[in-house]
């Protein structure tokens, strides 16, 4: 019994601090945000008092009504989802071959390649985003080359910077490591004997990939997709810096509500919708993944 009591005590000692941290810095702020979404904006920002001068609790659904009444918000929201999905897809297409090459390299080479994947994290996020201003800028070789080709084809010159293209390129660039690393962690564990067996049983290279390597890597694909999709959905710095006036995403809208328009309740509503949507899509992906990836298990249960 003393042993059990000791176990319980050490369990609390270990799980207590992170639990407290999450309560104070995640659960409580979320509750405050939910509460704020039902309150009214103050005249100069902030919120009106919770209990009005007439002693009535001031809670209303006005901010929610506004979100669902004006289609522009839903459009920006949808655009954000599409951009995040496209970013995730491009990251997956770029990261998969890269992760596969790294996972199948010799040990020394593998460490070097992994280092190169992580290297961008060593410089500041904003600096890396500003660097793209130079790379995509009108004086840079890239834009000149593109416009030279367009001129040859008789087309009008375009600006690479301050465009949806610039936003997407940078979103992919920033999030690529978050796709490579979980994929690598998964692929690196694959047993070469399975590929040998598949080959021995008559599978060519393409069949070995689609029937063995890819299905076994799905947990890595889901992890990477979640790590890219969720932050890409809420990003505001990249459209701010590299996008044009019409390239605002939901993240920019939320930032605007809190810092410029100073409408906290509406900013809270947007944040809540964003969180619910991200959770919903992640849940959907997990459900689809379980139904599709574990087909054997599903078949057995049926």
């Amino acid at each position: 019994m003393a042993q059990q009591a000791g176990d319980r005590k050490s369990r609390w000692l270990v799980s207590g601090p992170p639990l407290l941290y999450l309560i104070f810095f995640f659960a409580l702020p979320t509750l405050i945000m939910v509460l704020a979404s039902f309150r009214s904006p103050g005249e100069f920002g902030g919120l009106t008092p919770l209990v009005g001068e007439d002693g009535v609790l001031d809670l209303n659904l006005e901010s929610y009504a506004r979100f669902f009444a004006e289609s522009v918000y839903a459009e920006i929201f949808l655009k954000s989802v599409v951009i995040a999905l496209v970013t995730t897809l491009i990251c997956l297409l770029l990261a998969y071959p890269l992760a596969l090459v790294i996972a199948r390299s010799a040990k020394r080479r593998r460490d070097l390649l992994l280092l190169l994947v992580i290297l961008p994290f060593w410089s500041n996020f904003l600096i890396r985003v500003y660097a793209w201003m130079i790379i995509l800028g009108p004086q840079a070789a890239l834009a000149r080359g593109v416009n030279w080709l367009l001129a040859l084809a008789g087309a009008e010159p375009v600006s690479l910077l301050f465009s949806p293209f610039a936003v997407l390129v940078c979103l992919v660039y920033v999030h690529l490591p978050f796709m490579v690393l979980p994929l690598y962690a998964n692929l690196e564990k694959h047993d070469q004997a399975l590929l040998d067996a598949a080959q021995d049983l008559g599978a060519n290279g393409w069949q070995r990939f689609w029937r063995v390597t890819f299905p076994l890597s799905l947990p890595g694909v889901y992890a990477g997709a979640a790590l890219v999709f969720i932050p890409a959905l809420g990003i505001f710095a990249i459209p701010d810096i590299l996008g044009g006036p019409n390239d605002s995403l939901i993240g920019n809208l939320i930032k605007q509500q809190f810092l410029e328009t100073r409408d906290w309740p509406f900013g809270s509503v947007l944040s809540i919708v964003l969180t619910v949507a991200a959770l919903g899509l992640a849940g959907l992906a997990a459900w689809v993944g379980r139904a599709g990836g574990g087909s054997g298990e599903a078949a057995r249960r049926a």
Partner: peptide, 9 residues
């Protein structure tokens, strides 16, 4: 090691 495909029945 048998090398059975773990994701197949």
């Amino acid at each position: 090691s048998y090398a059975l495909f773990p994701h197949m029945t």
